[in-house]
Design a protein around this nucleic acid. Sequence first.
DNA 1: CGGTAGTTACTGACAAGTCAGTAAGTCGCT
DNA 2: AGCGACTTACTGACTTGTCAGTAACTACCG
Lengths: 217, 217
Amino acid sequence: MDDAVPPAAAPQRRARQPRRATTERRAEILRAAAHTFGSKGYKNGSLAEVADQVGITHAGVLHHFGSKEALLVEVLEYRDKEDVRDLEGQHIPDGIELFQHLVRTARMNVDRRGIVQGYTVLTGESVTEDHPARDWVTNRFTILRGEITAAIVEVGGGDVPQDVAECAASAIIGVMDGLQVQWLLDDGVDLPAATQFAIEAILTAALLGTGRPHPLT
Amino acid sequence: MDDAVPPAAAPQRRARQPRRATTERRAEILRAAAHTFGSKGYKNGSLAEVADQVGITHAGVLHHFGSKEALLVEVLEYRDKEDVRDLEGQHIPDGIELFQHLVRTARMNVDRRGIVQGYTVLTGESVTEDHPARDWVTNRFTILRGEITAAIVEVGGGDVPQDVAECAASAIIGVMDGLQVQWLLDDGVDLPAATQFAIEAILTAALLGTGRPHPLT
DNA sequence: CGGTAGTTACTGACAAGTCAGTAAGTCGCT
DNA sequence: AGCGACTTACTGACTTGTCAGTAACTACCG
């Protein structure tokens, strides 16, 4: 009946869009969610805001992902896949190349403020109790530490004790993350320079006594 | 003359001062708020939870602090004052002593997980837009960087270029914060050892060429 | 020293808003 | 025709903040 008449003559903003490939639609939502969770955090970012960016309602988002938490998990997985795709073709860097890659990443990050902010906010949030991203973040750190530790040992030709390599690996990850926070809050911080300086310093210290003093550049 | 008449109908109100126990009560609330904001974050921590811990209602908390944001600001100031009080009597460390103090702090922090978590969560949150703690965190970083930069220059006997000292200072703060995050998520990370290792490494690199190679211990 | 005016420190009820999640219906592609 | 991709409409839980009322305390007056 006529009582169902909606705000008549509404050429509905999100009116009938041609049915897109669902996969691409989901990817759109994931990118929007990554942006929202990145700038506002997971808890503070709302499904409505995510939905707005792709022109649907929050219920539409839930149709695709079931729950907010499931959406976060998929965002995380999506970003992992993207990272891997970026590296495709290139061989995974190891040894000394890994450290050059890390410094290059810091340089690139200056032009990817949004992504850096997202990573920072989510990582900070994740240390709270029962945070849905906690396992993901923890796991990511564990893998990264493993790779960097191995690279240090390799560069040191096996002369670097395991515990020293592990300390140095944690420190390298820590300094990268910590510098990002300072840079996000204050543009005066020279992210690439400080990152390179610190990585070289830590690497040099780890290799001390192995006869390979000045590893980078 | 009629000028003796006090500001029209403005009699000196009497009991203007807060009650004796009020200061302590407010401090109780501040400690509770620090705990809640620390474990859940500012956005996610509620006034009701804070109020519960001191046995009043959320309206009672608002009676004392006016708004949630004002409460956060006072929590931050309260913690600053506490930190200062802890250092009272001791002279503020400078030069090489500052770095020894930083390493000592990392060692102490292992037994103050709650405080470390609070600092981490709040710092992470603060990079989001319009966060009420943003200025406080930014300012804190600026001051810390200034102090550490000065200490590096001092230890280097003036031979360390300003930009190198600044890079090193940012890196030292960054590595301390970044290692705390990893430690919170994974007890396997040796916070004191990695912190000391990294600070020594960065300091050594900053002093390279000044003839003061092995600064700590 | 006792009373009392004025204030402080709350409580409980409520307003107004936001949030995730659900149910049921509609549109249109395949 | 049927199903996937939505929308509208709604619920219930939680939020911060306001307000009126109350008990307790304190300062001063007589």
